[in-house]
Design a protein around this nucleic acid. Sequence first.
DNA 1: ATCATATACTTGCAAAAAGCAAGTGAAATG
DNA 2: CATTTCACTTGCTTTTTGCAAGTATATGAT
Lengths: 143, 143
Amino acid sequence: MSRTSDACRSHCPINFVLETFGDRWTLLIVRDLMFKQKQTYGGFLESDEGISTNILAERLKRLEAHGIIERHGPKGQRQVYALTSKGRDLLPVMLEITAWSARHDAATNTPPGFLQAYEVNPDGVKAAILAQLDGDESGPGPD
Amino acid sequence: MSRTSDACRSHCPINFVLETFGDRWTLLIVRDLMFKQKQTYGGFLESDEGISTNILAERLKRLEAHGIIERHGPKGQRQVYALTSKGRDLLPVMLEITAWSARHDAATNTPPGFLQAYEVNPDGVKAAILAQLDGDESGPGPD
DNA sequence: ATCATATACTTGCAAAAAGCAAGTGAAATG
DNA sequence: CATTTCACTTGCTTTTTGCAAGTATATGAT
């Protein structure tokens, strides 16, 4: 299953993120938590890409072990997942990824206004998303 | 092997990068091209993480098919790989990844000065790296 | 109280991908 | 012209993924 600490291949910073996020699913969970206001197992399952239940359960464990997310709720019962500060700190990475895809995927889901808003005022976009993560219910996400 | 165009799971921008970079090796090749002045098959093989030859060959094909890199040289002979403009455009993503790892990996290889230099003057850091990609031989990379 | 339903997982197995070692073919080197 | 080097390919084993089904606990209706 998942080790608490995998043997790491190097301490190159690019490799460091790959050790946690170097697969096709993990970052989608972060996306759901960060941009889509999803915070339950069932919510993650509903996402368009169609993650399977065993993969989801394993990735949630890994993310928790790496300190990216934390789970709230009595064990065995309904859990509510949330990003830790280390997880929220991925926001600039997520926004740059979104901007790159918006530039290079002609069929992107990213709303038309995002790219320009982000280029003009990246800190404003970041602040808005952090505000809504902290319980605000209004404001746009990048997709 | 690798399809020219995989069936894509969604046009979410986060998913879009995962379709190309969602594995443990692909982004290391981009790193080598962007920061380590490596541009040959043999150079990529020497990197610390120890990619195997079949995986490297397949990833090079995929990256070329996705328009991230291009190969120069007569077919069957020694190739020189280079980032396309789409590939170079990943620089902001790579730098944010580097910054996140520098903040959260106590054992990071990232040189001590990088994080502050990047926070103070991100455009300067970007310009320096792009300059060295375009043939300049001096200047620092993030690792 | 009991039955159905929903949620949050776990388990089992087949298929795909990764990892390792060895092999191949063309070009550069001696 | 034999040897070495480089850039891959091939074969095989191990690991991971993907799908379907099952289980445990809670919640809601009769």
